[in-house]
Nucleic acid binder design. Structure first.
Length: 287
DNA sequence: ACGATACCCTGATGGC
DNA sequence: TGCCATCAGGGTATCG
């Protein structure tokens, strides 16, 4: 099993857990060599140097669901876990790189033979290389909205603008706010009593204010609980996430609302399975 | 211009 | 048991 971090459907809390657990192991250490086993998982310069060979890792940052591994010269890579991606720390004692494991696309070997690996069966994730942090921000992170843990109510309200699209679709849009995925959007809308079909422009400033607070609290609680584990997630210390037990609506279609008891409704919205409580989240009529 | 849809991909799952 | 259809969805390309 993976020594560090697997997250199925990694959203902001899961990525933050990966960031923290990996940073503990690799910051301050030199990348001795890089093995690229599947070239098309990397976008940009695919040379060993671009993939951080010879560099000393100085930090791991996160913006929304994306991570950046930054090094002493400023050279960095951006890692997106997609749906099934993971960054796993593997001590040297755990055998040879990628041995017997499928879908390990990149292996970074550190001093003493310890290493970390990018694995992604479905390949919705990827790795992007940048000569420096400014280029990463300019070419990639500037396309994202503010991080969901940092965004303020006024900014979120402005980002929603006068869009008529369903609030669920807007909150999933990483250019509006970075870090939310299907699970946390449904949970957030339930918490705020907002119907997922509500046109974004019709969510009042007051509700956006409450939503912003609820979003921070929800994400913070999930990070605290170790993130959401739907199948086999363990962090660097072998601990599974525990937040799934707190889900109010996600994955509970047809089951009773934990607040009012009525059967939760569901439909596909913005291409995503969406679950809500028809009484706790009234309205939703499009205009 | 905006919003909805198709597609990428593999593993888990359920039906027969 | 094994085969096949179905579903899951983050992000992007394309359609309407």
């Amino acid at each position: 099993m993976c020594g560090a971090t697997i997250a199925r459907m990694p959203e902001l809390p899961e990525v933050e857990r990966v960031r923290r657990s990996l940073a503990e192991r690799v910051v301050g250490r030199r990348v001795e060599r890089v093995m690229l086993r599947r070239a098309d998982i990397v976008e940009g310069d695919r040379s060993p140097a671009a993939l951080l060979a010879g560099r000393v890792i100085t930090g791991i940052e996160r913006h929304g669901k994306q991570m950046a591994i930054v090094t002493d010269t400023g050279r960095c890579i951006c890692v997106h876990l997609g749906m099934t991606g993971s960054l796993c720390y593997e001590p040297a004692t755990r055998g040879e790189k990628g041995e017997g494991k499928k879908h390990v696309h990149v292996v970074w070997t550190l001093d003493a033979g310890d290493r970390f690996e990018f694995r992604d069966p479905r390949r919705f994730g990827g790795v992007w290389t940048f000569p420096d942090r400014d280029t990463l921000v300019r070419d990639r992170w500037s396309l994202l909205g503010r991080d969901a843990l940092a965004i303020e109510a006024g900014e979120l309200h402005a980002a929603l603008g006068d869009s008529r699209r369903p609030i669920k679709a807007a909150l999933l849009d990483q250019a509006v706010v970075a870090g939310l995925g299907n699970i946390y959007v449904d949970e957030l809308l339930f918490t705020c009593g907002v119907h997922p079909l509500t046109p974004a422009r019709r969510v009042s400033a007051a509700v956006v204010e409450a939503m912003t607070r609820a979003m921070r609290a929800l994400l913070a609680r999930s990070i605290e609980a170790g993130g959401t584990t739907l199948r086999d997630y363990v962090d660097a210390n072998g601990q599974a996430g525990g937040f799934q037990s707190q889900h109010q609506v996600y994955g509970r279609r047809g089951e009773g609302c934990r607040v009012c008891g009525i059967a939760l409704r569901s439909r596909v919205l913005a291409g995503r399975m969406t679950v809500w409580c028809p009484t706790c989240q009234p309205g939703g009529r499009k205009r």
